[in-house]
Design a protein around this nucleic acid. Structure first.
Length: 246
DNA sequence: AAACTATACAACCGCTATACT
DNA sequence: TAGTATAGCGGTTGTATAGTT
């Protein structure tokens, strides 16, 4: 497991990209594809490391990127998914078409996180901060906090209840199928894009880098939680719009 | 008008995962 | 199986710009 030495080379340019550099990179990729990023800069006539080129392409130049302000729906999605997934920006980005993980991360850090803090919501746990005396907050803020928390809590409880029901069913099926020696099928968690990294794969003994679940949910609960939130998504977090503190 | 501060976001750094030899 | 190269990811920094004093 070696680290890439490509950025260590001296004489390579750093910092903001110029329009000329963008043009070179775009033109090259349009004609040849990016291929190996390491060899790309030289072929494209750029004095940059491959990593820098890759980032510039994936975060800025790629044609399928939507730029500009995030709309309310996107904001809600980010907040909900952040509550569920934590700082797993790439996972969040898969649910926001044409947005990059970098853009979402920046938007969270510069806008959404601050907004939640101002509302008295801990941006890590998505719960009201204990030390915030409710009496010091305005009534509308209280309502927003309660709504935010209640939505997540109810979704979580609903998910856990559903999981418990399914677990019972599963046990029942298990005993039924045992006698007929049919191969037992786990209830299909096919929503692959929502599968969290913190679930330990069967062949892996060592936990992965990202092992934290903000809600301390196990795998099954998390999946159910996702399903529930898709339903509850229609409820929206309108209070964020109503009580926007921008 | 100049100096200072805050904000937004592009870009970099350093790490892990994975593919390849 | 071990070593290496590369891609991907999240945290952090740097810089341009807007706003304030």
């Amino acid at each position: 497991m070696g680290r890439s030495p490509c950025c260590d080379k001296l004489g390579l340019k750093k910092g903001p990209w110029t329009p000329e550099e963008d043009q070179k990179l775009l033109a090259y990729i349009e004609e040849h594809g990016h291929g190996s990023w390491r060899s790309l800069p030289e072929k494209a006539g750029l004095h940059r490391c491959g990593k820098s080129c890759r980032l510039r392409w994936t975060n800025y130049l790629r044609p399928d990127i939507k730029r500009g302000k995030f709309n309310l729906q996107e904001e809600q999605t980010i907040i909900q998914l952040h509550a569920l997934l934590g700082n797993r920006w790439s996972a969040i980005a898969t649910h926001l078409p044409k947005r990059t993980d970098n853009e979402i991360k920046n938007y969270w850090n510069t806008h959404l996180k601050k907004r939640l803090v101002k509302m008295g919501i801990d941006p890590v746990t998505h719960k009201p901060k204990n030390e915030t005396p409710l009496s010091s907050l305005g009534l509308s803020k209280n309502a927003a906090i309660l709504s935010h928390t209640a939505q997540w809590e109810s979704a979580r409880l609903e998910a856990e209840a559903r999981l418990a029901r399914e677990s019972k069913l599963l046990h029942l099926q298990h005993y039924q199928t045992k006698t007929s020696s049919q191969p037992h099928h786990h209830h299909g968690f096919t929503h692959k894009s929502l599968l969290p990294n913190w679930t330990t794969k069967p062949h892996e003994g060592k936990p992965k880098k990202h092992t934290k679940s903000p809600q301390n949910l196990n795998f099954g609960t998390l999946f159910e939680f996702c399903k529930t939130m898709q339903i509850n998504n229609s409820l929206n977090l309108r209070h964020l719009q109503c009580h926007s503190l921008r």
